[in-house]
Deep mutational scan, measured.
Amino acid sequence: DEETLERIAKELKEKGWTLIVNGKLITDAREALKWLLEEEERR
């Protein structure tokens, strides 16, 4: 759910983690959240 996604995005940002999505590096939590939401919609 959205709360979980926001928590994940926040944790990613705090830890300075990066996500690699389709070979693209995502360092911004907002971008990561946007991607996660798009993935949820596809299901």
Score class of each variant (00 low, 15 high):
R7K: 06
T4H: 07
K10G: 04
I8M: 06
T18Q: 08
W35N: 00
E2I: 12
L37N: 02
T4S: 06
W17V: 02
E31S: 08
K10E: 05
K24V: 12
K34Y: 06
R42I: 06
W35P: 00
E41N: 10
G23A: 07
D1V: 13
A9W: 15
A9Y: 14
D28C: 15
V21D: 01
V21W: 12
I8F: 05
E3Y: 14
T18C: 15
E31V: 09
A32P: 00
L36G: 00
T27N: 08
T4G: 04
T4D: 07
G16H: 07
E3V: 13
R30A: 10
I26W: 13
T4I: 14
A29E: 04
W17N: 00
L25N: 03
E6Q: 10
I26R: 01
K34T: 04
E3G: 12
E6C: 15
L37G: 02
E41G: 11
E41F: 12
L5S: 02
L5Q: 03
T18S: 09
K13W: 13
I8W: 11
E11H: 12
L36Q: 00
I8K: 01
D1P: 10
L37I: 07
A29G: 02
E11D: 06
V21I: 13
N22T: 06
E41V: 11
T27F: 13
D28F: 15
I20T: 04
E11K: 14
E41Y: 11
K15Y: 12
E39N: 11
D28G: 07
L33E: 00
R30W: 14
T27D: 06
V21K: 03
E31D: 05
V21P: 01
L12K: 01
G23W: 15
E41H: 10
L5I: 06
K13F: 14
A29Y: 12
R42D: 05
T4Y: 11
R43L: 09
L37M: 07
W17A: 00
K34R: 12
T4K: 06
K15E: 05
G16V: 12
E41C: 15
E11I: 15
T18P: 03
R43G: 06
A29P: 11
G23P: 02
I20K: 01
E38L: 10
E40H: 13
A32V: 12
A32E: 00
K10S: 09
L19A: 02
L19S: 01
D1G: 10
R43P: 07
E38I: 08
K24T: 07
W35F: 06
I26K: 00
E38N: 06
R42A: 06
R43Y: 09
K10N: 11
K34N: 04
A29F: 14
R7L: 09
K13M: 14
E3F: 14
E6I: 12
L5W: 13
E14Y: 04
E14I: 08
K24C: 14
E31N: 10
T27Q: 08
L36H: 01
A9K: 08
W35M: 03
E6G: 09
I8G: 01
L25F: 10
K15S: 05
E40Q: 10
I20R: 00
L19H: 01
K13G: 11
T18N: 04
A32D: 00
K10M: 07
A9C: 15
V21C: 15
R7F: 07
K13S: 11
L33N: 00
E40T: 10
T27H: 09
N22V: 14
D28T: 07
E41T: 09
E31A: 09
E2R: 10
D28W: 15
E14M: 08
A32T: 04
L25Q: 06
R30I: 13
V21S: 05
A29T: 06
E31P: 00
A32C: 14
T4L: 15
E11V: 13
E39D: 10
E38Q: 09
K13R: 12
W17S: 00
W35C: 07
R30M: 12
G16Q: 07
K13V: 13
T18F: 11
E38M: 12
I20E: 02
E31W: 13
I26A: 04
I8Q: 02
T27G: 04
R7W: 13
I8R: 10
I26M: 05
D1F: 14
G16R: 11
L12D: 01
G23Q: 02
E14G: 05
E2G: 08
L19R: 01
K15V: 03
L33Q: 00
T4C: 15
A9M: 15
A29L: 13
E6P: 03
K13I: 12
E31Q: 10
N22W: 14
E3H: 09
